[in-house]
Each structure stands twice: as structure tokens, then as C-alpha cells.
């Protein structure tokens, strides 16, 4: 079980750095979706079943859809994207160093076969009971946040007179 986590950590780091460094926005979005799926695998192996499902479905699905619809609403031709970045000095050694350090650490962990040490005893509790019974303040906050999101979409995407 520990090897799955270490391999997934390596892939997560690689996908995140590729999402940051990629020149094309669509490829960045796809790398981000892959990173979310890998994080879902890590969460599932650690025992957080509900969080893994919601992470994969929301982050890997909903945010990618929002991102791609935002890209398509601003129709930029591919040559303009290249022109935007051609004069930007890229520190290419920084992400390469990040990936090398991260992967080296994980290879070290795999070689030494570090297992999951669990120092605390597990409190058997059901996530659903805790969420609906004791975290009601968070639920009120989430409802208000979703309300603000709805108001924001209504206010910001309104299509009335175009001021030039």
C-alpha cells in the first residue's frame, strides 16, 4: 500500500509542475484534471473514501468544465498565445529542479521501503454523522457561498448594453 502512495505522489508532482509550465492553456487544464485524479487515488488509499469521490468528481470534472468554457468564451487564436509567451524569460531550471528533487525523494522512500506508520488509534466515526450534526456552521457558510456564486454569475455575465 505504501508503494501506491509513493508512486502516486511522484505522478502528482509531475502533473502539477507540467500544468504550471505548459504554454497552452488546454494542456494545462488537462494536466490539472489528471493531477486531481491522482490525488483522488492518494485520498482513497489513505482511507478518506468520501473526500476522494468528491475530489475526483468536482475538481477533475467541474473545474475543468468551468476553465474550458472560460477559454472558449475568450476566443484567442493559437498564434497569439505563442506570441504572448515568446518574450517571457522562463526559468526552466526551477521546475526541473522541483521534479528532480521530488522524484529523487520518492525513489529513496521506495528503496528504503518506508511503510505507513500510524501512531494514533483510529477513532471510528462516520463522516456523514459528523458533517450533518456537528459542522452546521460550515454548512451555513457553504450555502451562503453558493448563493454568492449565483449572484456573481448573474451580475458578472449580464449581457446588457456594451460600453466601448
Amino acid at each position: 500500500m505504501a508503494t501506491i502512495i509513493y508512486i502516486s505522489l511522484a505522478f502528482l508532482l509531475i502533473f502539477c509542475v507540467m500544468a504550471v509550465m505548459s504554454h497552452s492553456l488546454l494542456k494545462s487544464a488537462i494536466y490539472l484534471a489528471l493531477a486531481s485524479a491522482t490525488l483522488g487515488v492518494i485520498l482513497y488509499v489513505l482511507g478518506a473514501y468520501w473526500a476522494a469521490v468528491i475530489e475526483v468528481s468536482v475538481c477533475s470534472g467541474l473545474i475543468t468544465v468551468i476553465f474550458i468554457s472560460a477559454i472558449s468564451l475568450s476566443k484567442i487564436k493559437k498564434e497569439e498565445v505563442q506570441k504572448l509567451y515568446s518574450d517571457k524569460k522562463r526559468m526552466w531550471f526551477l521546475p526541473v529542479m522541483l521534479i528532480v528533487v521530488g522524484v529523487a525523494l520518492i525513489v529513496l522512500a521506495l528503496a528504503n521501503d518506508l511503510s505507513l506508520t500510524n501512531t494514533a488509534e483510529k477513532v471510528t466515526e462516520d463522516f456523514r454523522e459528523i458533517f450533518w450534526n456537528t459542522r452546521q456552521a460550515d454548512i451555513i457558510g457553504q450555502i451562503v457561498t453558493i448563493l454568492i456564486g449565483g449572484i456573481a454569475v448573474f451580475v458578472l455575465f449580464r449581457d446588457d448594453e456594451d460600453k466601448k
Binding site: 456552521a137 451555513i140 457558510g141 451562503v144 448563493l147 454568492i148 449572484i151
Partner: peptide, 30 residues
């Protein structure tokens, strides 16, 4: 928006948990 800002600020000074503080902080922010 003024009413949601009021809910966010009122909630933030009244909670008794650090994570709920963070949730209402983000309500104020958004």
C-alpha cells in the same frame, strides 16, 4: 451582496471553531 457580506461578518465574529472562521472569512472575501 451587502446582505451576504453582513452574514459573513456576523458569522465570523460569532463562531467557536477555527475552521468555521476560515469558511466565513472566505464568504467575506468572495
Amino acid at each position: 451582496l451587502l446582505m451576504t457580506l453582513l452574514i459573513g461578518m456576523n458569522g465570523m465574529v460569532m463562531v467557536s471553531d477555527l475552521f468555521s472562521l476560515y469558511v466565513f472569512l472566505d464568504v467575506i472575501g468572495i
